[in-house]
Amino acid sequence: MARSSTSTSKDAQDLFRALWSAYSATPTNLKIIDLYVLFAIFTALLQVVYMALVGTFPFNSFLSGVLSCVGTAVLAVCLRIQVNKENKEFKDLAPERAFADFVLCNLVLHLVIMNFLG
């Protein structure tokens, strides 16, 4: 019925607006991390689409590319968890320490990726 569809779409719009305003409340550095994660995920998706189109020919390169994106995203998410002040679990961990871990892991990740890229 037209009324329920408009109401559902209105509900969806309200939901979306509520989420968006809630999200705007997050601190900027977390937003940066989120943006970074999105960037990585998006790149990974693009690669999967490409693979679907042309096949898995240099499979190692594909894996390497996708893994680099996914690994980056995962490490960024871990950093976000550790850096987020509202996260009670990591209250005692200095954010710089988290960042140092992040940098180290990323360097290792990129070494591995470069090796596997072929």
Binding site: A44, Y50, F57, S61, A76, F99
Partner: peptide, 26 residues
């Protein structure tokens, strides 16, 4: 391998993104 250029690009863009991010984040 030309067919793998997107993957190369992805890996390098990740590396670049990491560099930028690390600077920005700190």
């Amino acid at each position: 391998i030309p067919a793998a250029y997107p993957y190369y690009g992805a890996a390098f863009s990740m590396m670049a993104g990491f560099f930028v991010f690390s600077a920005v984040h700190l």
